Computed example of a mutant assay.
Amino acid sequence: MKTQLLILTLLASAFASQIQAQDRTTINAKNFEISDNLDLRAVASIFGDSKNLQDFERKLNDPKLQISNLDLNNDDQVDYLRVIESVESRTHVIIIQSVLDRDLYQDVATIEVEKDRYNKVHIQVVGDVYMYGQNYIYEPVYYNTPLIYASFWLSSYRPYCSSWYWNYYPSYYYAWNPFPVFRYRYNIYNSLNSYNQYNYVNYRRSSHAVTMYSSRRSNAYERQHPDYSFSRRNSEVNNRYELDQTRNTRNLGYSQNRNNSSRVSNSSKADSQRIYAQNRLETPRVNAPQRTESQRDYSQNRSETPKVNASQRKESPRVSTPQKSESRVDNSQSRNSNSGNKSTSKNNNKRS
């Protein structure tokens, strides 16, 4: 009976732990922000540095650069991003897709390149509405004309389509584990080409590109998670840019609170230092007269003492010298008397 009760207790505890683990997973999924894991400015940066779309796809998935941190299928490996292209006349739509599984792809962003009638090239990097919200767009301004433009408007140009898919990847690629968001941001900050400009806009330049893309869009992840769109994840803002502004405002308020607290602490420290300095200044003022008076008394005592000693020294020789002279007179008189006595005695002896 005891054995059965022990087994039942162990089974109940294991079941409870499984339920708690499932709850943790659900909570983490709700708090996870997808758009934190692919910076469109980095996508625009490497696009301007690429020779062609094949080179661009290579840079997107280079394990050394680590431009992406997306793991949409939750296999603890960063998804491979493949590139396909649609071309009509002077308009190129380059689509970046996350490879989720066999024949399952989710669009994450598009690059729309169009040359106008004045032969001026316009480029926009557009985040997918499910991933980034409505009209999340960056317009890069390159300091040098990208080499990738050289072949875009040749008559012999053929649209690019990636030959890679699920479990079939190029030799240079290997999957890596996603990083924490703060580490990914630090990596992207160091990867951006600082000579370029990345201007945010909220409108599409090419209506033709919008029409071309609408028939080519892939949304496997969106279909699997229809309630996890950007508008559901962040109902108070329209797109990723507004979300960043909200975050910056919160961080600014936090930094201001920290600055105010530091100012209060610094002012209290300054006040305490002022009080301490005043106490130090006032204390010598009180003690200084005592020290001067004691020094004066001491100096007077020293000055009077030598005077007394000097007078004593001067008077003592005066007293002692007469005694010496008198003693010398007495000695001389005694000697004279003795000599007189001796002479009288000698004269008497002679007479006799």
Rank of each mutant, 00 (worst) to 15 (best):
L252K: 13
T110L: 09
V141N: 10
N301T: 14
R24Q: 14
Q54G: 01
I34F: 07
Y195S: 12
N69W: 00
V329I: 07
R183T: 13
N234V: 00
E57V: 07
P284K: 12
D297L: 15
L65N: 06
R263V: 05
I84Y: 04
S294P: 06
R217F: 00
A109K: 01
N31C: 02
P317E: 11
D227K: 15
S218Q: 04
Y168L: 08
Q197S: 11
H122T: 01
L6M: 15
Q300R: 15
Y195E: 08
V83W: 01
N301R: 13
K350T: 11
S327P: 06
T249K: 11
Q20T: 07
A29S: 13
Q312I: 12
D330H: 11
F182S: 05
N347A: 12
F152C: 03
D244Y: 15
L40R: 01
V121A: 00
N69E: 05
E304L: 15
E326A: 13
V329N: 10
Y173N: 01
N251L: 14
D62G: 02
L72V: 03
S299F: 04
P159A: 07
V181I: 09
E88C: 03
R240A: 12
Y195D: 07
M1G: 11
K307C: 04
I46D: 01
A29P: 05
T9Q: 14
M1L: 14
M212A: 02
F230W: 08
R41H: 02
R296G: 04
R205L: 10
A310G: 11
N199C: 09
E326T: 06
W153H: 00
K120C: 05
R232N: 11
A44R: 02
L65K: 01
S229Y: 02
Q300W: 14
S45F: 05
Q224V: 00
Q4W: 15
Q333R: 13
E33D: 12
Y186Q: 14
Q54F: 09
N287T: 07
L192I: 10
L252M: 15
A29D: 15
H92F: 03
D71S: 07
Q22D: 09
F179Q: 02
Q197D: 07
H208P: 01
R240G: 02
R183P: 06
L11T: 02
K120M: 12
D39M: 10
H92C: 00
D128A: 06
S235F: 09
Q134R: 10
K30I: 00
R117Q: 02
R117L: 11
K307F: 07
N338W: 09
R233T: 01
F15D: 12
R285Y: 12
N279E: 06
